[in-house]
């Protein structure tokens, strides 16, 4: 939070409320600010509060409930906040029910990306979100829920480029997000694919890959599981603690 930022009092208030767990009060503060100063005030505050606070706040509003932030969060602030989204996942749940976490993650991504019909904003959001390592992992987690359909979309992206229709053999909710991502950022789409199918180096190779439905068959292509990807994302959560020491680690020189 920079000293020169506008609305410092509101930014501080929202941060404190979110960290204290009062999401509804924070949301109220957002609503009041929007009424009083307009939507840009909320955008300004979202630009200023730390990304882990944004993540905490937005994670509380996935699925059924709507938050003003879902509609107004700036793409960069949203992308930054995604780094922290895995921080609060319980280990037990990653282990026992990874699909449920992946689905709530899908609800969050879908909710933000498709909150408005503004295609330009959607492209900006998806491009920013997929531009980071953790962003690529997040999309790979969503794709891991429907790997077969994703391979079909990958084939279509290669053959038809931006004119893809998204016709797949089954009806999966993941497909529209995948197509939106492929249209928003070619790079982000590729990175998410390679995160899910780590053996591939070029997306054209994926177009030819056959997905085997038989769960007993030896898989012909290496695919990371949802659980594995959730753990990967958990490992990518950055530390927010600022080291006060000026000492630099000597690394493996400790063994010298």
């Amino acid at each position: 939070m920079s000293e020169k930022s506008n609305l410092p009092a509101l930014s501080k208030q929202v941060t404190e409320l979110v960290l204290a767990g009062s999401l509804s009060h924070a949301e109220e503060a957002f609503a009041e600010a929007a009424d009083q100063f307009g939507d840009l005030a909320v955008v300004e505050v979202l630009n200023n509060i730390p990304p882990q606070v944004t993540a905490l706040h937005m994670a509380g509003f996935d699925g059924g409930k709507m938050s003003l932030t879902t509609l107004l969060v700036p793409p960069k602030a949203w992308a930054d906040s995604l780094a922290f989204i895995a921080a609060t996942w319980p280990d037990d749940q990653i282990e026992d029910d990874p699909e449920r976490i992946a689905e709530s993650l899908f609800a969050h991504i879908h909710g933000v990306a498709f909150a408005t019909d503004d295609e330009e904003r959607r492209n900006e959001l998806l491009a920013a979100a997929s531009a980071t390592d953790y962003g690529a992992t997040i999309f790979a987690i969503l794709f891991s829920l429907a790997p077969k359909e994703i391979l079909e979309v990958a084939g279509e992206v290669i053959s038809k480029g931006p004119y893809l229709t998204g016709q797949t053999s089954t009806d999966s909710d993941i497909v529209p997000v995948a197509i939106a991502l492929a249209q928003a950022s070619e790079d982000g789409w590729d990175r998410a694919l390679f995160e899910l199918f780590p053996e591939f180096r070029h997306s054209a190779d994926l177009a030819d890959a056959e997905y085997d439905d038989d769960p007993d068959a030896e898989p012909s292509i290496l695919q990371r599981s949802t659980k594995e990807l959730l753990y990967r994302l958990r490992k990518q959560v950055p530390s927010t603690r600022v080291a006060k020491t000026s000492r630099r680690s000597v690394g493996t020189n400790i063994f010298s």
Binding site: R247, S249, G251, F255
Partner: peptide
Amino acid sequence: DDAAYALADELTGINAMVAEK
């Protein structure tokens, strides 16, 4: 507090390097 955090960080880092090696 600061020194304790810094020390914890260093020890964690050493722990990780020892585990790897």
